[in-house]
Design a protein around this nucleic acid. Structure first.
Lengths: 346, 346
DNA sequence: TTGTAGGCGTTATCAC
DNA sequence: GTGATAACGCCTACAA
């Protein structure tokens, strides 16, 4: 048996352009041009160079290339939680857009952790990446972003940032989503509802709530949650323990699907059935929504498009090298009526 | 109103270490040492330098630093589909492990596309990243990997590669998973089953099938799918159209949850109810599994741990600079019995 | 058609 | 305690 190649080769220093040049008997310049095609090279020498390149397994060091070019052709995507399918879809859109223009995408998953966010933002300050799509669902640190947006290419996805207007933004139409839910429930005859909102600091969350309250035109009890399943569960369970839902309250609108699932669980545990006793509506249309029991009525967000649009905007900025005018893309949402809503029990 | 700072600053070339040095009246060397703490600097000069650093907003260019250091402190994670929660969890584990050691993680989402895979593998060949965790669920291009593994730090996660033995591997115990399902169904009295496998080229898929067949000890009809929901649906729907399940076949084991969902749908459309008429089992335990109707009996894979372990292995390799001995971590799986399985109808 | 020289921004080495 | 200088690996004027 031959010795492990796995072990053998790992030691060698990778070939550089000089190695190739020397082995081919030409200058580094020529090698560079053979590879880039930036200027004509004698077909004969070119062939020789290429053969050496192959033999030595030479691959240009992208670091050196980037250093000299002043850009890396890589951008970042900062999100709070990749295992949330909403962000996963958004990431997919972002990656497709990046890929289309020959850019790489670094996923920056923060887990809502400020430390991580800082570290990732450092990548843009140190110019390891050419730009950043910022899609943090956490109430973002306004200060930090503000400073950065003046100096580096940044686009906001999904979530606007209070006070930062002159920016690139792609977001779903949260207000319209809330409105659709309000109309839907009203039409079904519901007159009192419980609303589980997201963090107050998030514009998207407020927009959903506002749109809903305005369209529903009934009585709404608002409880503030944090977009996690546990908070949906906790808020509803607590309410039920303390004497049940408000009288005649026959509907629950959660500002995202995860909280809706939590609410569903709490209701079920209390012996209430959905949608017979209470209707439940979510927001996002994550994959589990249609699979749940009962299938969740929810607002479909164009997560993929949000990611794709924001990224395309950013790359326009990055590739053109000039600061584009502020722009906002508000993408349409869609109400998905499923099994978790029904006419109000009387 | 003041002119947009957003527009103003974006033009300026970022300050370099030389700019700082000049402004502070010291050499670049000193600036470097003030920032790195690599050698003592007069407290007075240090303070002056720091103030200039602040004033100029100087941040060292990580590219230049990496070029000189010979490594980037960034690794890649190559996966086929980030919106599959299995890979999302795996990614989370990988990111945590990377973060712990101060490494960044580039997400390489291939969508099962060979082109993209190539492009991402290029990042390691061009040394833009220090290593790669390879978790592609697609039948991987053996050749390409083989060549790479000899020269660059690569660890395999989730999926082994046929013929590549001398490597770092972290994977779930697929065979045991299949066995658990086989025993479970057998215990419930099932004697004939339909098995929807993944691609034949995947070891993990074969291991699941083998473990199952061996433990079930009944008659098994194997149909080859591709791990997508559509294939689970298609295979079962076709079978039902062509005369129904084989006689006395009372159970379906899909090699992953997505295909199980597809099967569920096809069965439901044909008027069969789960689990009364047919029991269905999946594999992976993605989030939707417990939310589905009925909740899916499935094999829980330690996705997070697989990602974390593989990445930790890789980083040991990368940071120590030496090729470690081949190692294999087989992580335990767990059968989650839920509502989609029941004793065989007789 | 090809080569030389300089520079991208940093850090390590060596000298003072 | 501090500074020149070289080197990391590449690209691109400029020159021949």
């Amino acid at each position: 048996m031959t010795p492990e190649p796995f072990q053998r080769e790992a030691v060698r220093r990778p070939a550089s352009i000089k190695d190739v040049a020397a082995a081919a008997g030409v200058s580094a310049t020529t090698v560079s041009h053979v590879l880039s095609g930036n200027r004509p090279v004698n077909e004969h020498t070119a062939a020789r160079v290429r053969s050496v390149v192959n033999r030595l397994g030479y691959v240009p060091a992208s670091l050196a290339r980037s250093l000299q070019a002043g850009s890396t052709s890589v951008i970042g995507l900062l999100i709070p939680d990749i295992s949330n399918t909403f962000f996963a879809e958004l990431a997919k859109g972002a990656e497709d857009a990046a890929h289309d223009l020959g850019y790489g995408l670094i996923l920056c998953n923060t887990e809502f952790d400020a430390d991580r966010e800082d570290r990732y933002l450092g990548m843009i300050r140190s110019r390891f990446i050419d730009g950043m799509v910022y899609a943090s669902g956490s109430p973002p640190s306004r200060r930090r972003l503000e400073a950065l947006m003046g100096k580096f290419p940044i686009a906001l996805a999904d979530e606007e940032v209070e006070g930062l207007e002159g920016a690139l933004i792609a977001t779903a139409d949260h207000e319209a989503g809330g409105r659709l839910v309000g109309e839907h429930l009203r039409t079904l005859g519901h007159r009192r509802a419980l609303m589980l909102t997201g963090p107050r600091a998030l514009r998207s969350s407020n927009a959903r709530a506002n749109g809903f309250v305005r369209a529903f035109r009934g009585e709404v009890l608002e409880l503030v949650g944090d977009f996690k399943e546990s908070s949906g569960y906790g808020l509803v369970a607590k309410l039920l323990q303390e004497g049940g839902l408000p009288e005649d309250c026959t509907a629950v609108f959660a500002a995202n699907d995860l909280m809706a699932f939590g609410a569903l669980l709490a209701l079920r545990e209390a012996g209430l059935s959905v949608p017979e006793d209470v209707s439940v509506v979510g927001f996002d249309d994550i994959r589990a929504a249609s699979l749940a029991h009962p299938p969740l009525t929810t607002v479909h967000q164009p997560a993929y498009d949000v990611g794709r649009t924001a990224t395309a905007q950013l790359l326009q900025y990055v590739t053109r090298g000039e600061v584009p005018p502020a722009s906002r893309h508000t993408l349409p949402v869609e109400l998905k009526v499923r099994g978790s809503t029904a006419p109000a029990a009387r």
